[in-house]
Amino acid sequence: MNPQDQKTNLLESIATLELKMDFVLSALNATPDRSKFMTAQDVDKEIGIDQRTILNRSNLSPVNKNYIPSVRFGGRRKYFERKVIEKIFSPSV
């Protein structure tokens, strides 16, 4: 195995572990990482898109082009991945 393959294997293992940790934390009702996830209210404050728009779009069918994926960590509150929101709503240069 060459060093590049080892590095790739290590990165894949880390990504898998992160996914498993996220699953376990969500099962334990842990609070999400604020640097990775944001609420609809946070989106409203930081980007300026109304929180009702974000929540309504998260209820659409995933095949709809306006759909915004969300995740729940135990309670009723929906969280959105920061990088997804920024990719959707940031102006492209």
Rank of each mutant, 00 (worst) to 15 (best):
V93R: 15
K78E: 01
N66C: 08
R72V: 09
M21W: 01
K78P: 00
N66V: 01
F73Y: 13
F37T: 03
K45Y: 01
E86D: 12
E18R: 12
T39L: 05
P32F: 01
V43H: 02
Q51N: 08
L17H: 02
Q51I: 01
K45G: 04
F23N: 14
S92Q: 14
S26W: 04
L28V: 09
Q4E: 12
E81C: 04
V93W: 12
P62F: 05
P32R: 10
D44C: 06
N9S: 14
G48N: 05
D5Q: 15
I47A: 06
P69Y: 04
Q6D: 14
L10I: 12
N66R: 12
K83W: 03
A30G: 06
F80L: 00
G48C: 02
V43Y: 00
S92L: 11
D22T: 11
K78H: 10
E86G: 02
Q41I: 09
S90K: 10
I47D: 04
T16E: 07
L28D: 11
R76Q: 10
K87N: 07
N56Q: 11
N2G: 13
N29S: 11
G48T: 07
F73M: 01
T39K: 07
R52Y: 03
S26F: 03
N2R: 04
S61R: 13
D50Y: 04
N64E: 06
T39W: 01
L28F: 10
K36S: 01
V24C: 08
N64A: 06
L25P: 00
Q6W: 07
G74W: 01
I47S: 02
D33I: 08
L17W: 05
R72K: 15
E18K: 15
K36W: 00
E46H: 07
V84L: 08
R34L: 12
A40T: 03
L60A: 05
T39Y: 05
L17G: 00
E86P: 02
K7Q: 13
A15H: 09
E12K: 13
Q6H: 14
M21G: 02
L28I: 09
N9R: 13
A40P: 02
K7E: 13
N2I: 08
V93G: 15
F37E: 03
N29M: 07
E12Y: 07
K7C: 05
D33M: 08
I14H: 06
L10Q: 13
D44S: 11
K20Y: 04
R77A: 12
A30T: 05
Q6R: 14
E18Q: 11
T53S: 12
N66M: 12
A40L: 07
L10D: 09
